Amino acid sequence: MKRVTFTSESSSSCQLIYGEKLLERVPESLKILDSGARKALQIHPEDEYLMPGGEHIKSIDRVLEVYQVLRASGRRAVTVIGGGSLIDLVGYAASTHGEVDRLFLYPTTTVSQIMPPLSGFSINFEFIKNLLKSCGLPDRVYVDTDLTYDTMYRIHRGEIFFPLLVAYSLDERLFKYVLNHIISGDEVTRELWGDIIYSASSIFVKSIGSSRTVVGCWVGDLIQSASRLRTEYSTALIYGAILELHIARTSGLMDGSGKDDLYEALRVLGKLDRSMKIDVSSLVDLVNQKGGVKIALPASSGESSHWITARDFETLVRDRPWMEFGSVL
């Protein structure tokens, strides 16, 4: 079992615990579960409350619902078992509720395992992604790689895209390590999957507070807002990364080797079965309202990010050839 400790600027700390079968030792608490995850995992913990997953759940009305559940339960400790949306919702409610002392997280999706919420929690308002934010830090994050291994296996290794993207964005050496495993075609064992998740999550935690972030996050959030929150975050992240990389490539902000490596990884992984139709007009309108958008650049780049004006963004996003990059997925 591996552990990583994260300490915030306020000196609050969170322990991340990595391993398998961690759900067998859930702390005594009120358990708020993603109903879909509960069905898939076949778990029935005591003191449970079921909620749906998905981006639409991150609303003020649902925060008030969590407040009522907390009051009825009388519990001062809360455990969340689910994906990033449910974690954000309950984390926001817990961090703004004066009687919650402890918060424990069991992320059940690959994205939520490698990008744990250690910079506060956010909910949506009026179909704008993450408009309302709260400060807060979970006490512990239990990263049980068993929860995502079977999902990864069912969709033919496509979930490896997410730790690969984190590595590509933050640590060139880790990117090469994961890339070599993908290209070799070797079986991704439970042990290897656990190692990949731990490594990607660790470098993400270390990046918090630095100037670097994961490629695709900024535009991915805008894609969700442009779709009125109907697009899953993992899908928006994929296409956000594709678009940010297209902009970086077209603007001469990336060297050729970095591009070729990622193209090769995407070619080997094959189609991820996450097709979507981007509302380009709504996306452009959002960027126009902000006056532009920041895009993240990969670890191999000299810069960590670059500001794109609204005019340049519109020109580049309406350049249909960028979708050819997405076709490799």
Rank of each mutant, 00 (worst) to 15 (best):
A236T: 04
A248F: 08
I196G: 03
D186N: 13
I197N: 03
L229S: 12
Y168E: 00
A241W: 00
D150E: 13
N180Y: 00
G220Q: 04
V215G: 08
A248W: 08
D146M: 09
Q224R: 13
I223T: 06
A226Q: 10
I223G: 06
D195T: 13
V143H: 07
R190A: 13
V214M: 05
E232R: 13
H246A: 14
D150Q: 05
I208A: 10
Y149M: 07
D144F: 14
R154Q: 09
G209P: 14
S201D: 08
V166H: 06
A236K: 04
H181K: 01
D186E: 15
Y168H: 05
Y233C: 01
D186T: 07
C217R: 07
V205F: 12
V143F: 10
E191N: 11
A248V: 04
I182N: 00
S210N: 11
A236V: 02
L147G: 10
K206L: 03
Y198H: 15
L165Q: 02
V178Y: 02
Y149W: 15
V166E: 02
L192S: 02
I155H: 13
P163T: 08
T189R: 09
Y198T: 09
R228N: 14
D144S: 12
H156A: 15
S202Y: 13
H156E: 12
V214H: 06
I247Y: 03
I238C: 02
T231Y: 07
L179D: 00
Y153R: 13
G209W: 11
M152I: 11
E244P: 10
S227G: 10
I183E: 10
S211N: 11
E159D: 14
K206Q: 13
L222T: 08
S169R: 02
T148M: 12
L243W: 05
E187G: 00
V219W: 09
A241R: 01
F162D: 05
E187V: 10
V178C: 01
E159M: 13
D221F: 03
V178N: 01
I160Y: 02
E244F: 07
S207L: 08
S211R: 14
E187Q: 11
R228I: 07
Y198D: 03
A248D: 06
K176T: 04
L245R: 11
I196S: 01
T151H: 13
A236E: 02
Y177R: 07
T148E: 10
A226L: 04
T235D: 09
V214W: 06
V214L: 07
T151S: 14
D186S: 15
D146C: 08
I223L: 15
I160E: 07
G240C: 01
W218C: 09
D221W: 03
T189M: 07
Y149P: 03
T235M: 08
G216V: 02
V178T: 00
D186V: 11
V215C: 15
S234W: 09
L192G: 07
I196C: 03
D221I: 05
G240K: 03
I196H: 04
A200F: 10
D221K: 09
L229W: 12
L174S: 06
S169E: 05
I247P: 06
G194F: 11
L222N: 09
I160T: 12
V219P: 09
I242L: 12
L164Q: 01
A226Y: 05
S169M: 04
T231R: 11
S199F: 04
M152K: 08
K206T: 06
I155W: 12
E191S: 15
D150A: 13
K176Y: 04
K206G: 00
R154D: 10
T148F: 13
H246L: 04
G220P: 08
